[in-house]
Computed example of a mutant assay.
Amino acid sequence: MAKYKFDVHYKGTALEDNSIPVKDLAPSLLSLSEAFQTIQKINNPSEAPLSLNITATKKGSFLVELLLVNGKDLLKQAMDFLNSGPSTAVINLATYVGIFVNVVNYITKIADKKIKDKKEENGKVTITLDDDSSITMSADEFKVYKNTRGAS
């Protein structure tokens, strides 16, 4: 089973007492899990489904350590290990995290602007926005952005 561990830190004035209501945290974690599943479906639809798991909370702070998990079958794990499957799976998981972070950054930069033009070349997509600024991203990142935002 491939694993890629990363942390999500929540901060801000709402956390002055080192706590957050579960009803506020749960939707953000569910959305994060759905985002990774969407990225995987777009990039590797035949791969075993991802699961985003919480591994621990550290005392005295609000730190949630997340574990992105791929696959469960022990026999398949053994066969994949012999065929370098786990290495590929870990690389895929790291790639999904990279795509997620980049797409969040693109969404932030694009905000309420409209895409005026789109050019695809050599696995890259360059979009020109209605303010004449442009952003270049990988074709995979654009697929995820398009899926997330309904962009054309």
Rank of each mutant, 00 (worst) to 15 (best):
M1C: 05
M1N: 13
A2E: 12
Y4H: 15
K5E: 12
F6G: 05
D7S: 10
V8R: 13
Y10C: 03
Y10D: 01
Y10S: 08
Y10E: 06
Y10Q: 05
K11D: 14
G12V: 03
T13H: 13
N18D: 14
N18Y: 08
N18A: 07
S19H: 07
S19G: 09
I20V: 11
V22S: 15
V22H: 08
K23T: 12
L25V: 06
S28G: 02
L29E: 12
L29A: 00
L30Y: 09
L30Q: 15
I39C: 00
K41E: 03
I42S: 01
N44A: 11
S46V: 04
S46I: 05
P49E: 05
L52Y: 08
L52G: 00
A56E: 15
T57Q: 12
K59T: 11
K59A: 14
K59M: 09
K59I: 14
S61C: 09
F62I: 14
L63S: 02
L63G: 11
E65W: 01
E65M: 10
E65D: 11
N70S: 13
G71H: 10
G71F: 06
G71I: 03
M79S: 10
F81V: 01
N83R: 14
N83S: 15
S84C: 07
P86C: 00
N92D: 15
A94E: 13
A94L: 01
V97S: 00
F100M: 11
V101K: 15
V103R: 02
V104W: 11
Y106R: 01
T108V: 00
K109P: 00
I110R: 07
K114W: 04
I115S: 07
I115C: 02
K119N: 14
K119T: 11
E121Q: 11
E121D: 11
G123S: 09
V125D: 06
T126E: 13
T126P: 10
D132M: 10
D132K: 07
S133C: 03
S134Y: 05
I135S: 00
I135Y: 15
A139M: 05
A139S: 13
D140E: 05
D140T: 02
D140Q: 04
F142S: 00
K143Q: 08
V144D: 04
Y145V: 04
K146D: 05
K146H: 04
G150L: 02
A151C: 10
